[in-house]
Structure formats: structure tokens, C-alpha cells
């Protein structure tokens, strides 16, 4: 999983059936402690209602996304926001 900042959202009318009604957000991966961007911005499914600018935790567990979207095994999505990060800190 990686931490990221929500940069925006994606709207699409013509898409895979399993994405019907799904909220798609643009997430910019960032180094958890320094927040420095590291990696390409990607699209992740959001069911937690993350706001633009929020720090989130993104997981690449496809099975999890299928459960979140209540979509069957043919749901081709892998990234989903699984937590809104209050803070990440060195212990």
C-alpha cells in the first residue's frame, strides 16, 4: 500500500460496467513521512468519501475492490482508497 494525496476526480460515462456509480479519484503517491511525491499519479476507486487534497492510503488488492464495489470477479480494478490518513509519523 502507499500513501497519496487526492488531486482530483475522474468522470466517465462510457466505462466498464463494474465501475457504474463508482467514485474515481486521482491520487498522487507520496513518501509517507516526508510527503515528497514519488511515482506517477494514478486513479483509485473511493468509497470512503475522501476530499480533494486529503492524505489517503491506497491498496492494490483487486479482491478488496471487487468487494467494495460489490462487483463480480470480472471487475478489472486494482487500486482503491482504504483509509483516510490522520497522520503518519516516525515512531
Amino acid at each position: 500500500m502507499f500513501t497519496a494525496q487526492v488531486k482530483g476526480s475522474v468522470t466517465s460515462t462510457s466505462k466498464h460496467a463494474s465501475l457504474k456509480g463508482a467514485r474515481l479519484l486521482i491520487v498522487q503517491p507520496g513518501e509517507p513521512l516526508s510527503g515528497q511525491p514519488n511515482g506517477f499519479a494514478q486513479i483509485a476507486v473511493d468509497v470512503l468519501g475522501a476530499a480533494i487534497g486529503a492524505q489517503v492510503l491506497v491498496s492494490g488488492d483487486g479482491r478488496g475492490v471487487q468487494d467494495m464495489l460489490k462487483a463480480g470477479r470480472d471487475c478489472p480494478v486494482r487500486l482503491a482508497i482504504v483509509a483516510l490518513v490522520d497522520r503518519s509519523l516516525s515512531q
Binding site: 500513501t3 470512503l48 492510503l57 482504504v82 483516510l84 503518519s88 509519523l89 516516525s90 515512531q91
Partner: peptide, 9 residues
């Protein structure tokens, strides 16, 4: 380090 999150799956 660690990550703290109250709002989560």
C-alpha cells in the same frame, strides 16, 4: 514509522 487512520475500511 507508522500510519494512523481512524476513517478506514
Amino acid at each position: 514509522g507508522k500510519v494512523v487512520a481512524t476513517m478506514k475500511e
